[in-house]
Simulated scan of single mutants.
Amino acid sequence: MGQVVGNSLVGNSGFDNQAFIYSGGTTQSIGLNGIPYAINDSGEVVGGTTGGGIFPKLAFPYGAAFLYSNGTTTIINNNLEDNYIAYGINNLGQAVGIFGSPSRAFLYDNGIITNLGTLPGDNYSSALDINDLGQVVGSSGLTGVDDGRAFLYSSSTGLQNLGKLSPTDLFSIAEGINNLGQVVGSSGTYNDLKPFLYSDNTLYNLNDLIAPGSDAGFTLTIASAINNNGQIVGRGAVNGEFHAFLLTPVSSVSVAEPSSGFPILSFGAGVILFAALKRKTHSSSAVIQQRS
């Protein structure tokens, strides 16, 4: 739809964040102090506010999750004694985020907020994205410091631990999910982050799927979102400098499935290879595009 949400800082206090929507060359204020985190295809926006603007009674540290829809902004949590932030929204108006301390993942649906809980043995969780099937992704951990585990939630299965790319990784976090149930995120340590793609019950390191000689020195570190066409955005490093990237699938080629579990194909420079995502005899390639 070409719409963008963000916030503009007013003054030097660091707390007066004016939330806005940008569309068609025009920036429109939502009318509150806060940070919008997501927008759906209908232009509905969710985020977090610490008061001010149209919600003068809210005051830090008691923030609230907001929903902007059809020109009206409302607070979606009835309990104002805990901090709430909404991080994701789907095209059905369902939203996800965190609340409380220690934080818990929540799902908002038609006026009802559901605590999604944690993985077994954990004390905190956060929900970051939701697809149109109501599947939710995020992380769950014991302390919330360097120990989170990526999860996938559905109403039928509850929270499912997606694991980590390596046993030596300290944490993993799932940040995006599409309507095919494909999940992207990161796994590792703060000094050694690796992006992952979860599909068909398998966790892949995106860096391992780069065709030899086609990476142009690009090391992928974070995968943030994936759309229904399989395009992935995130961050990586080129010659020690961080840049945003866009991975775009460009072809599908029929091949025999090798014993390694996914086909390695030879394409031209600048191409990333994906594993077979839906049918075992096919694989997709994607162009990597740098965004400064």
Rank of each mutant, 00 (worst) to 15 (best):
V5Q: 01
V5I: 10
G6F: 08
S8N: 07
D16N: 13
D16V: 00
Q18T: 03
S29T: 00
Y37A: 04
Y37D: 01
E44D: 13
G48I: 06
T50D: 05
L58C: 04
A59D: 14
F66M: 02
L67Q: 01
T73P: 10
N77F: 10
N79G: 00
I85Y: 14
I89P: 03
N90I: 01
I98L: 13
F99V: 05
R104S: 02
F106D: 07
L107Q: 05
I113M: 15
G121S: 05
S125C: 06
D129Q: 02
L142I: 10
V145M: 13
D146N: 14
S154V: 02
S172R: 03
I173S: 07
A174R: 12
A174Q: 11
G176F: 06
V184M: 11
S186W: 14
S186K: 13
S187Q: 12
G188Y: 02
N191D: 03
P195D: 00
Y198W: 12
S199A: 10
Y204E: 01
L206A: 07
L206P: 06
N207E: 00
I210V: 12
P212H: 04
D215I: 12
A216G: 01
I226R: 10
Q231M: 10
G236Y: 01
E241F: 13
V250S: 14
S252Q: 09
V255N: 04
P258R: 13
S260K: 13
I264R: 14
A275V: 08
T281K: 15
S284M: 14
